[in-house]
Structures are given as C-alpha cells and as structure tokens.
C-alpha cells in the first residue's frame, strides 16, 4: 500500500476538503475491516473421521472434546465407516478388529474365528472401564454439549444406505467434500483419522 499518495487529484488540482474527508472515511472503513478480520483469533480444527472400529473412534472424539474445552471451533466430518460413530445404535456397539492387529495377543488365524472380534472388544471395554477412560457414548455427548459440530457426509450416508434419523439429533447432514474443505481451509489444524 502506498503511503505517499499526493494530496492532489489526478488532474493535478489540490484535493478539496470533501474529497479528503471521503478518502479518510474510505481508509477508516478499510482499517475497521482489517481489525475485524484479525481480531477473530479463535483456533479452528477439522477432523475427518473415516473409521468405525472401536479403537479408531476414540482419537477423533478425544481430540474434538478437548479442543472444544480450549474454546476452539471444531468440526468432525464423518465419512465412510466413520458414520458409525454418529449412528446412535451402532456407536454403542463398535467392534475392535482382532484380525490384522499386531498388538492383539493372538495369531491372525485364530483371530479370524467367529466371536473373536466380540471377545477382543469385551476385553478392551473392561480395560477402559478399569482405567477410568470415558466410553464412546460419553465422549459423543461431551462433544455435542460443548458445541463440536458433528457432520455426516451425505454421499456416504446414501452409499452405505443409512437412515439420517438413526444418527444423533445434533448431527449435521446434507454436507459434502466442499463443506469439509471449506472448514479445513479456515482451520489451524486438519486431521484425517
């Protein structure tokens, strides 16, 4: 921005008082706009949650509820299996996968047997209770109470044949990739889980 604008109009004539006054007002408006833009220092975070297993539901919920405690503006965009976290019934019954999890104390050949996922989930649920770790349900409620915006991707709702009525009431539906990207572009932190 030029700071040495001569106090004269284009034709070389000195500016009238009215013209100067108008110029001052114009600049004052600009300063006010800039001040408003920079005053909003609320941090923003966008998390994209794509997984619907018991263990993968925790990180986005823990980070979202904690970020909300910082007073941040938080959006969690749920897509594909991440939608299960928003599904009232399914979210209470998310399963840990025993297969393909190298941390499981059993070989894959055994883990693939029926009932193994349920058993692994039960074990984990007990450890969570013993450790005083919040349940997924508690974290969803906390997130909602604190104003975290939980979004459900419209395309995957339809792809996976979900009924929007089965989601928690506070969930935002009718949103897609462009909505997610818009919030991501404005965010200080963007995470894909």
């Amino acid at each position: 921005m030029s700071t040495d604008t001569p106090a004269a109009s284009a034709d070389g004539e000195p500016l009238t008082e009215a013209e100067l006054q108008a110029r001052i007002e114009e600049l004052e408006d600009k300063v006010a706009t800039l001040e408003t833009d920079t005053a909003d220092d609320t941090k923003k975070m966008t998390i994209v949650a794509t997984q619907g297993t018991f263990d993968m539901a925790y990180p986005p919920l823990i980070l979202a509820s904690t970020a909300a405690a910082f007073g941040w503006d938080v959006v969690v965009f749920h897509t594909f299996w991440g939608l299960d976290i928003l599904h009232e019934e399914k979210s209470k019954d998310l399963k840990l996968s025993a297969v393909g999890n190298p941390s499981m104390p059993m070989p894959n050949a055994l883990a693939a047997f029926p009932g193994m996922d349920s058993m692994a989930t039960k074990m984990m649920e007990k450890r969570i209770a013993d450790n005083g770790t919040a349940t997924i349900e508690e974290l969803i409620e906390l997130s909602i109470d604190q104003g975290v915006e939980l979004q459900a991707c419209q395309m995957t709702i339809e792809l996976m044949e979900y009924d929007e009525d089965d989601f928690y009431d506070e969930v935002t539906v009718g949103v897609g990739a462009a909505t997610a990207l818009q919030h991501m572009a404005e965010s200080d932190i963007q995470l894909l889980v």
Binding site: I62, S65, T66, A68, A69, F70, N131, G132, T133, A134, L142, Q146
Partner: peptide
C-alpha cells in the same frame, strides 16, 4: 477419570 476428562470437566 483419565484423559480427556480432567481437562474437559475442568473447562
């Protein structure tokens, strides 16, 4: 209670 509860409850 464990993470994130102490922070969230404090807030």
């Amino acid at each position: 209670a464990s993470c994130p509860m102490p922070v969230v409850k404090t807030k």
